[in-house]
Computed example of a mutant assay.
Amino acid sequence: MINLRRSNERGSVDLGWLQTKHTFSFANYYDPEQIGFSALRVINDDLVHPGSGFDTHGHKDMEIISVVLEGTIAHKDSEGNVEQLPAGEFQLMSAGKGIFHSEFNPSKTENLKLLQIWIEPNTFGGKPGYQQKHFGKKFGITTIASPDGRENSFTIKQDASLHQLVLEANSELKFDIEPGRKLYVHQVEGSLKVNDVTLSQGDGAKVSNEPSVLLANHSDKQIVALVFDLP
């Protein structure tokens, strides 16, 4: 079964310095039908104006992944990490027993576009952690985060994996799903067919009770999506 979450149905917030789309209920946006999907709790599609950002704030017991689509994030946290994340980089912050951080767009002229993803952990109260890496844009599936850090991916505190999918023009890939597990596909760039359902930029697909999905790019351009393998 595949249930669609269309981009134009997401929660929308405009704070002037920030425009964001919420795939799932978040902050002042609440939809009882969109609380999350399995351990996936948040996908926020953010646009941050030049010289603006999120002031220092705290998190606890959450796995927080940021994906920079355009521009640069200036990151600072209470564990002493002071980093810059340019476009194409991924960051995993394991909040553990508690961490404070800020995220800022240091540019005076360019917007910052990013996806912020929250995954609920299966262990709680541990030491906060920080991981950052550029995984490139290799064709096919690249594992970004996994429980065991396989294939040089981030190590995440949940029985879940995040993959980057890159398909060249007129290509396809079969993704097998283990019994009892679920898949969430978030379309980042271009148009993707998930079995017989078409996703455009910002769309999502909740996949359950399927042995596999066929992921197909029928266009003449490269496409990018995120694939979450969930318990």
Rank of each mutant, 00 (worst) to 15 (best):
N44I: 07
P32G: 08
T20W: 00
T198D: 11
N81D: 05
L230G: 08
P50G: 02
A145E: 04
E9N: 13
G204C: 06
A74E: 10
G190Q: 05
G202M: 02
A95M: 08
D148E: 10
N8I: 13
G51C: 04
K108I: 12
P106D: 01
A205E: 01
L18N: 10
I2N: 11
N28E: 14
W17F: 09
M1E: 15
D77W: 14
N217F: 06
A95R: 10
L215W: 06
G190K: 11
S146G: 11
R41E: 03
H75C: 01
G149C: 06
T72Y: 04
V13H: 06
L114T: 02
M93E: 00
G96H: 02
K193G: 05
P231V: 13
V13Y: 07
P128I: 05
D220E: 15
D220R: 07
S191R: 13
F100A: 12
H57Q: 05
G140N: 06
I177C: 05
H59E: 12
N122C: 09
N105C: 05
S78Q: 08
H59A: 08
Y184E: 03
Q201K: 14
L192D: 02
M62Y: 05
E33P: 02
K157C: 10
F37R: 09
V224C: 11
N81C: 04
I144K: 04
Q84T: 12
V185P: 07
G204V: 04
Q158L: 07
T142Y: 00
H218V: 14
I156F: 03
Q164N: 08
N8C: 09
F139T: 15
P106F: 01
E63D: 08
D176M: 11
I156Q: 03
Q158A: 13
S107V: 09
D203I: 02
H49W: 12
N195W: 03
G36T: 07
E9Y: 08
N111A: 08
L214A: 08
D196G: 07
Y130N: 01
E120D: 12
E172A: 13
I223W: 11
K113Y: 06
F26I: 02
G80A: 01
G129L: 07
K21V: 05
L165A: 04
S200L: 11
N152G: 14
A95W: 09
V13T: 12
P121Q: 06
K97V: 06
L165Y: 03
F100P: 08
Q132H: 13
I65M: 14
H49Y: 14
Q34F: 12
K60M: 10
E79F: 13
L183C: 09
H163K: 12
I177V: 14
N195K: 13
L69S: 06
F100H: 15
L215E: 05
E168H: 14
M1G: 15
L114W: 06
A27N: 09
S66G: 04
N105W: 03
G71H: 02
N122K: 14
V82C: 09
Y29F: 15
G53A: 04
G53P: 01
G80K: 03
K97E: 10
I119H: 04
V68W: 07
F90G: 00
Q34Y: 14
P147I: 03
F24S: 07
E172Q: 15
I2V: 15
D203Q: 03
Q132M: 10
F26K: 00
Y30L: 14
E151W: 00
A225V: 02
L40G: 10
L183K: 08
K60E: 08
S107P: 08
Y29W: 12
H101A: 00
E79T: 15
I65K: 06
Q164P: 03
